[in-house]
């Protein structure tokens, strides 16, 4: 028995130990900035002004959140509403469009499947660029300051389409074939056989799309000027662009000459913007990891 165990090499143990330490440190570095933001949001403005940001809250207080929730309620509620609406509607719409297209492209005896696949693929090879896109969207589709403008342009991500197609192609051909022999049409086959069997792939793109819409800043930047359609990310942008944006926008604060809690407010709003993602993340991250592995290289 003893002879079965191979001699352990001491340098190997040291190396593996180093790997543990390095990975642990890097993981820690991934979290520390977030911790700093959270701490900042619970600090008092004066402490931050004197000492700057740090990893632990300075003079722990909920003042910033009180201030944000009382003075900025309208702005934030509206932005949150826009973000949630765009994320929900956008994700449902995009996933439907993408999955349907992916199925059509994967049907083996459909004569135009390859042509359609190339029709989508070509947009990954060549793009007209930002300027023509911007001109077309504003001048012809009139998407500026509409909720559709924040949704439609992302509805057909070709990369995600291929990801779903890979999953569908992994379904044994006999299964779809037997459904067809039983007299199911293409649509029925899609709903009854394909959808249940490619659930894992669809969940992945649901999450990717939801993340895209939640974090999107490009469409608001290009198409939104009216405060009614400001999303959370756009509020953050305004805030970064002009620290006083929220202060000047808050009504009934003019009489006070107290220093406005701008630095901590920034952190609080940042926390509010990433809050839902951080909450959902632990439950969904495994789908992302899986999705990346499947989608990345199989093309």
């Amino acid at each position: 028995m003893k002879s079965m165990i191979k001699p352990r090499i001491k340098s190997d143990d040291i190396l593996i130990g180093c790997f543990y330490v390095l990975l642990g440190l890097f993981s820690l570095l991934c979290l520390l900035p977030i911790l700093m933001v959270i701490s900042g949001s619970f600090s008092t403005e004066t402490e931050i002004a004197v000492h700057g940001f740090s990893l632990l809250p300075q003079g722990f207080s909920l003042d910033t959140y009180n201030y944000v929730l009382s003075r900025q309620m309208n702005t934030l509620a509206s932005a949150y509403g826009v973000t949630i609406f765009v994320t929900l509607v956008g994700t449902v719409l995009s996933v439907t469009i993408t999955t349907c297209f992916a199925y059509v492209v994967s049907v083996k005896d459909f004569q135009h499947a390859n042509k359609l696949a190339f029709f989508a693929y070509f947009t990954m090879l060549f793009s007209g660029g930002m300027l023509p896109w911007y001109l077309v969207c504003t001048r012809y589709y009139h998407l500026q300051d509409t909720l559709w403008g924040l949704i439609l342009p992302y509805c057909m991500n070709v990369f995600y389409m291929y990801l779903v197609r890979n999953y569908i192609n992994g379904i044994p051909y006999e299964l779809t074939e037997s459904a067809r022999i039983d007299g199911a049409g293409y649509f029925q086959t899609f709903v009854k056989v394909i959808l249940p069997l490619s659930k894992a792939g669809i969940v992945t793109i649901v999450l990717f799309y939801a993340l895209t819409y939640w974090n999107d800043f490009y469409l608001p930047l290009m198409l939104v000027t009216d405060d009614k359609y400001f999303s959370m990310q756009y509020i953050l942008y305004k805030m970064n662009a002009n620290i006083q944006y929220l202060a000047t926008n808050s009504t009934g604060f003019g009489a006070d000459h107290i220093a406005l809690p701008t630095q901590t407010v920034k952190m609080a709003i940042t926390c509010i913007a990433i809050g839902p993602i951080a909450l959902v993340y632990p439950f969904v991250q495994k789908y992302f990891v899986k999705g990346v592995t499947v989608g990345a290289l199989k093309g």
Partner: peptide, 24 residues
């Protein structure tokens, strides 16, 4: 644990990243 922690920054938008960088 490492994989999920290291993956997390990918979920952070550039705007949030900007706020973090500014705080640094």
């Amino acid at each position: 644990t490492c994989q999920s922690v290291m993956f997390f920054p990918y979920f952070i938008s550039w705007m949030v990243m900007g706020a973090i960088i500014n705080a640094l």
